[in-house]
Amino acid sequence: MNSGWALNEVELELVGRFRELFKRKSMKISVEPGTSLLKIIMELGDAIGVDLRSEFIGPDGKPMDESSLIIVNGRVVDLTRISEQIVKPGDRIVLAPSVAGGG
């Protein structure tokens, strides 16, 4: 665990429209041990009154072509495993729009 972190805290960084939704660039949130990424997303959505899950997962329960991104410690999360991925204290989670461009 990083020093300077309260027990069970993770850092959430927000990019693009997620900044507008949360009206901030970043925040620290406390999580219970063993919490999945999906649970955090659902709880965050509830807190701001937005269906946050639908940014990442389509109505058919699968990621969409244009799903937003979740990046944990620099790694892009495979959204098909969002309910299995457990968040650890000290993790840096970024919510970002999908990349736009020619690529």
Binding site: G74, A96, V99, A100
Partner: peptide, 23 residues
């Protein structure tokens, strides 16, 4: 719809911060 929202609001410059987070 959502497939093009990113282009309409921020345009392609939205990539700057996302790419920065991805290294």
């Amino acid at each position: 719809g959502p497939a093009t929202e990113k282009y309409r609001v921020y345009g392609t410059p939205a990539n700057i911060l996302v790419h920065n987070k991805l290294g």
